[in-house]
Amino acid sequence: MTTATPLLELENVHKWYGQRHVLRGIDLRLHQGEVVCVIGPSGSGKSTLLRCINQLEKADAGTISLGGVDVMHEKRRGKLFERSGKDVAAFRQRIGMVFQHFNLFGHMSAVENVMFGPRQVNGVDKVVARARAMELLDMVGLAARASQLPTQLSGGEQQRVAIARCLAMEPEILMFDEATSALDPELVAEVINVMKELARAGTTMIAVTHEMGFARDAADAIVMMDAGLIIEEGPTAEVLNAPRHARTALFLGHVANRPDNRPDSRPANRPDV
């Protein structure tokens, strides 16, 4: 698997916000069917990383390639040029993104949210798009709420609609940016279950999450970020059970103590409080 071309490859990606160096040289590889969890303290650049990958923010240096093709630049007559807006949109379409605050289109019902992308971007016929949207809503367990507006749905339901909206575009990679951290504790599970289901079905995923239960069950690898750098990456069990970087161990200790992670994911060597 590791010998094939990675589906997504980042090389030495940098990002500045003004004077602030937010990503300081990120290298990352993601292969077809892999699930990677990105963890790290607040402000370490996890969201910025995902936003750079689908170019909601422009990376200032480095290369990002999807299926071996540079998504930011194209070569013409031996020179590198920025990609056109049309190309960028086409790349974004291949990478789905689920946001912390769902970002459902407020003026559209659940099913219209899911139909919107295929209709607008791919010009799919209305009847076909609606039928497909209903299938997807059914998959996330919300077929019965298809005609509700986002304001009439709970956070967990909104997030599941948002996932369906992504899936409707049939992306090659799904990215989750703390998809459950704006949810009430009792609603987290319904979203996590959908994410686990997708992982089981072989979806390629990058998930920024602090749900260690999800990481343990579904992730192939963990990437630990701190201050704009990846400080450790490795197979899930190795990173979680025997972190090599002291910062990772410390961070995992903090995360494990969050009430929603307590039951099964606390490192064995930590005393009971």
Partner: peptide, 13 residues
Amino acid sequence: GQMDAALSIGLRR
């Protein structure tokens, strides 16, 4: 976030 979501599914600005 509305603009982000629209862009992320492949709409032009």
